[in-house]
């Protein structure tokens, strides 16, 4: 597994955190972890919804102030 890739999508609305994650996931290798930083509370639900539907893995979600750190792993 390579170093965890950070996607800083704080304060961005368009294309937004999930779309950035989808784009980054295409470039990742199976087993890679990606951490997305989002100030959009909706990401807490949006990201797991997509991750589960496409078949990747949720690693965890934490909140630091108004920033959510959502970590996922490419599974296929």
């Amino acid at each position: 597994m390579s170093e965890r890739k950070i996607i800083d999508a704080r304060g961005t609305y368009c294309p937004g955190p999930l779309m950035e994650l989808i784009a980054a996931m295409k470039q990742a290798e199976v087993g890679d972890e990606l951490e997305i930083l989002s100030t959009d509370e909706g990401s807490v639900n949006d990201v797991p919804e997509w991750i589960n539907k496409v078949g990747h893995e949720m690693v965890g979600t934490t909140q630091e102030g108004d920033v959510w750190h959502i970590v996922v792993r490419k599974a296929k």
Partner: peptide, 10 residues
């Protein structure tokens, strides 16, 4: 559309 709504901007 790629995400769970019809456009990136809610």
């Amino acid at each position: 559309y790629p995400i769970g709504r019809l456009h990136a901007l809610a």
